[in-house]
Every structure is written in structure tokens, then in C-alpha cells.
Design a protein around this nucleic acid. Structure first.
Lengths: 174, 174
DNA sequence: GACGGCATGTAAGTCGTTACATGATTTG
DNA sequence: CAAATCATGTAACGACTTACATGCCGTC
């Protein structure tokens, strides 16, 4: 059937409620973006593909004269989604420039190297604030949607504490 | 000067010691891979490019009749590396299929959804064991190299605890 | 002498982002 | 009426992986 990551984003979002491609992008940017991003260049072609496979059904729902297509999950689409949710593949990839810097930080004078921990903590402090704003407007989310939001909050807090603890350790340890 | 992520991997590794492209791949696969992977298809072309820019210098160092090139960091290369280490860009991207599943888990019966937390914990338990093996053979690493290893260990432990705690919470909360 | 590891390199293909083109609608 | 937002779509580019091609070396 030929799937990719975007497939599951599309099917998963439509399991929550019918929506347009434009709306999907907005939802992704406020939620899964932190662990799974998606762009228009992926979303729109994938919607067309999944429609031709019969996993989603598109219906015209214009706003006045402005064209607009709203998609629904078909039974077949729901089956695929459930199949993936029950599957066990656990692909996990990260590109973390700040950790890469830390890894090579021995090339820097010790003081400057330790500073990198502070920069990393700051970055996660900013993410935390952003997530807290999101959380404030997230009443009534389904339980597992709010569980991943909680994950984001807990993870940021852990990162901040870890960086602070290591900074202390390195300053004392000298 | 036109840089990419592989640029910093190459320069950073050569700051540790001179090595060949083949060796770089091995080192990456045992260390930065978890937060910054690199393949031959990136490493070899990048080494050629950086050599022509004068940031690294290649020297022939065959093993018998088997050709082999060992690269060294030039002064210019060291300057570039320091520039990047002091820069503040903090690009951070993640593709975490297991979190994506969790986000969409409301489409599943509650029991099965909770199971996803166990699968995620198991995955991190496996990573932890792998890192512990790495750690056992990591005496004498430079301080910030072992700091990132410690990060991996601490992060895995935190993930496992988080999943277990949430699983308990969801089972009790019903 | 077969197999696994050393060693370099590239071609093909996938994945993903960015930026643009187009045009309707709402809001200040 | 200008600017922001709604809405769809694609083209070009860059990042990355996989698999292959090639051949030497050590060891069982």
C-alpha cells in the first residue's frame, strides 16, 4: 500500500474529526510538530494519494466562492490507522544541534564549554513557556492528546533540571 | 562558505584526532548517532568538499596495498569549528513514531492505548542497555564526550520512569 | 579459498522544507 | 482599500539513506 509518516498524520487527524488540508497544517503546527512535523508539500499530495486509495474521502465545502475540500476517514482508512497503532515499529530519529555542540565542546576553553549547558537550558525554558501557553487553551482535548502535551511539559522541565545539575557538577568538580 | 550538519561532525571529529572517513562512520555509529547520524553518502563527499576549501587536509596512509586517506584539521578548520561552537543557532528536530502513536491513541480501546506506554518504556529499556554496554568501554573519553553519554543514560532512565508513572496514573484514574 | 572486516566512493531514490503562484475573504 | 488570513497546490532544492561496485587484508 506504500505508506510514509505523513500517512499516519493524515489518518490520525481525520480520526479526531473531518478537516481540510489547510486545517491539518494548523493543527500539526500547534501539536505534533515537536515530535512529528508536516508541511503543505507533504500534506496535500498525501491527501490526494489517500483519496485515490479510498482511505479518505474528500468533499467540496466552499466558504462562499472560495474553494475548500473537507476530508473524512473511510472505514478502510480507519482499519489502516488501527493496524498502524497496533504495530510495533518504533522509528525514532533526532537531530539535536545543541547536543552535538556539547559532544564536541572539549575543543573549547572549559568555561565556554560549560556555558553551552546554560544555552541548552534556556532553549528548553523557551519551549516550556510556549507549551504552557498551549496548555492553557487545551481544555477538553482527548485524553491521549493531553498526555502528549503533558509529555512535552515534563520533558522540558527534566531537560532544564538536567542542564542545571550538570552545570553545577562541572563547576564544583574542577 | 556553505555549511551543513555533516560539516560540524567532520570538523568536530577531526578535532579529537586525525582519522579516515571509514573510521568517522564507526565513531559516529557508536556515539553521536543517537542525536546526529551520518552516512557514507554524506561523509565522503563532505570530506572532499572541506579539503578543497582548506578546512581539512587529507594524507595518504595505506594499509599495505589497500588505499586509505587520513584527514587532519587545519587552522582554518579549527577556526570554523570554534565559530560554530560559539554560535547560538539551536536547530532541533525529532521524528518519534511512538509519541505520534500515543497522540492518536484515543482511536484505540483504552486498554490497548495504555499498552503503548509499555511499548515505549520497553524501547527505552533496550536503548539503555545498549548505552550501558557502550559506557562500560568508555574509560578515558574527554569530559564532554562522556557528558553526552551520561545524557543518554539519564534520558533513557527518565523516559522509562515517565512511561511507568503515566501507565499507573491512567490505570488508577479510571 | 571463503568469509568477515577494512576502505573508498557513487547512484538512485525518498523525504522534507521553502517559496512561490493564485485567488477569495475578513478585518482594521 | 490595504493587510492579514483562508485555501489549494506545485516546483525546486537540499538532506539523507540504501544499496551497490570495487578491491585488499587477515583468519579459520
Amino acid at each position: 500500500m506504500d505508506v510514509n509518516g505523513t500517512t499516519w498524520v493524515v489518518l490520525g487527524l481525520l480520526a479526531l474529526r473531518p478537516m481540510s488540508g489547510y486545517e491539518m497544517k494548523q493543527v500539526v503546527d500547534r501539536s505534533t510538530r515537536f515530535f512529528w512535523a508536516a508541511s503543505y508539500g507533504q500534506l496535500y499530495p498525501e491527501l490526494g494519494r489517500l483519496e485515490s486509495l479510498g482511505l479518505v474521502a474528500g468533499e467540496s465545502a466552499p466558504t462562499g466562492a472560495r474553494p475548500r475540500r473537507v476530508f473524512t476517514l473511510t472505514e478502510k482508512g480507519r482499519d489502516s490507522l488501527h493496524g498502524w497503532l497496533r504495530a510495533s515499529g518504533t522509528r525514532m530519529e533526532t537531530r539535536d544541534e545543541s547536543l552535538l555542540r556539547l559532544f564536541f565542546a572539549d575543543a573549547l576553553p572549559h568555561d565556554e564549554a560549560v556555558q553551552l549547558l546554560r544555552a541548552r537550558a534556556d532553549h528548553h525554558r523557551a519551549s516550556l513557556m510556549q507549551l504552557e501557553t498551549t496548555a492553557a487553551a487545551a481544555e477538553g482535548d482527548p485524553p491521549f492528546v493531553s498526555l502528549t502535551l503533558r509529555y512535552g511539559l515534563d520533558y522540558c522541565r527534566w531537560e532544564i533540571e538536567w542542564c542545571e545539575a550538570q552545570e553545577r557538577r562541572l563547576r564544583e568538580g574542577t
